[in-house]
Simulated scan of single mutants.
Amino acid sequence: MNRAVITHIVQSSDALKITWQDGNQSTFNYIWLRDNAPKNNFSIGKGMAISFDIPLDVTPIRVTLNETLDIEWADDENIYQFDPAWLWANAYKPEEKNKPQSPLKLWRAVDIIHNLPIYSYPQLVSDEKKLRDMLQDVNDLGFAILQDVEQKKGMVLKVVELFGYVRESQYGRLYDLRMEPNPKHLSYTNLRVPAHVDGPYRHSMPTVQLIHSLVNSVDGGESTLVDGIFLAEELRRIDPTAFQLLATTPVTFRYGDDKSVLEYEGTIIETNRENCITGVRMNPIVIQPFYIEPQKMKDFYAAYQQFGRMTEDDANRIVTKLDAGNLLLFKNQRILHGREEFKPNKGERYLQGCYSDADDLGSKLAVLNRKFIS
């Protein structure tokens, strides 16, 4: 059955109700139809109707159902033709629009540890279908591991070109991860780094992160990955009160050095207006002292500690040695990453990283899906 077949129309004072062949109904307000009429699409030299110029009480003179839905408006002498398939695709149904186009595949480490999304970088360069599969995994699972990436400084910037562009930060186009004599950050030591996201002190956090291993011959130093959205959903299931505290109580994150001071106040669990989880801002390294109502402080700490323990649960953590030539590509607003402690006097650990944008990754995936998925 072709669902986008109109069988019946009913006009009211301010809207048009359409009945489809499958029995479902959609309501389209006249002002919305007038605003989105096909001839309103902008093309150079023709101009366009601007939404705020349309009368609120705009009404059609005539509505005719042929192969298209034809509308003649009182304020315009033209007849506008609406393709039923377009109307079906653009019917404004909030309960459907809020569903993700490609549902996330939330995970615990124990469920996917034997089936990690691992790809050969040279194959991604030469095979667009493999590239599509890899980007789909990053979209769905939040991460992928690329192998056989040339062990050359700056190579991480080249890998970004598979799908997008480098996003510069206070670190520049890329940053080095290795021990320093006088470290200003935990990442530049041999110590364990707890699960965290990068840049929660920015209003717009980095949304994609890449970490490339150039040398990794130390004992220890395994990389860790946790699905933050899975853990947030799990917290909501087992302790709704704790979830609500972390999703509604703003806290401050701050980064400062000789050249920059960055600060942002936001919630540890981020949700949209439908209460769907959109990301996490968990970073115990740069979080500032909590300024919360005294009567709320103990409960907030309990929720914060509970969520923190979940990020450290071995059942939730992927622990993997990022061998030289391997690269982690992940969604920074979803995947918390960390590092195990390593012995500083045996071997060397040198990684380079950079940031990019999920918008560009999603755009490249959409283009490849259009090419390969009919």
Rank of each mutant, 00 (worst) to 15 (best):
G362F: 03
S126R: 02
A195C: 08
T278Y: 07
D111P: 03
L56F: 05
Y80A: 10
N139P: 09
I269E: 08
T248K: 01
C354Y: 01
T320S: 04
G228R: 06
L16G: 11
V63N: 02
Y188L: 01
L368F: 07
S213M: 05
R349P: 12
Q101K: 07
L262C: 05
Y355A: 00
S13C: 04
Q81R: 14
F253G: 03
T249R: 01
K158R: 13
I61A: 00
Y171D: 01
M297V: 11
H337T: 11
V159L: 01
S363G: 12
M48T: 15
K152C: 04
I44P: 15
I292V: 15
V160S: 04
T267D: 02
K343H: 06
F42M: 14
A315K: 15
Y188E: 01
R309E: 14
D359V: 08
S187F: 00
D83Y: 12
T320M: 08
F243H: 01
Q306T: 15
Q170W: 05
Y304I: 14
N139H: 11
R281H: 10
H337E: 02
K346I: 14
F82R: 03
E340A: 07
E293R: 07
M134H: 14
N182Y: 09
I211Q: 03
W86M: 09
I71G: 01
P103L: 02
K364R: 14
F82L: 10
R108Y: 07
R108Q: 12
L65W: 08
V149R: 00
G279Y: 05
E233I: 07
Y291Q: 15
T189N: 03
L327H: 01
K343Q: 06
K97D: 07
G228V: 15
P117H: 10
D239G: 08
E265G: 06
L106P: 11
F82K: 05
E168T: 07
Q306H: 13
A144S: 09
T278P: 13
P206V: 08
I54C: 00
R309A: 11
I292R: 04
T252W: 04
G362S: 02
G45C: 08
T278L: 08
A4F: 09
M155S: 11
I318T: 14
D219H: 15
T207G: 06
F82M: 08
D219M: 14
W107F: 05
E95G: 03
L104T: 13
P60S: 00
S187T: 04
S51H: 10
W32F: 12
V286H: 02
Q11W: 04
Q21G: 12
F290N: 14
G308T: 13
P103Q: 02
G308P: 14
V193R: 00
S217R: 15
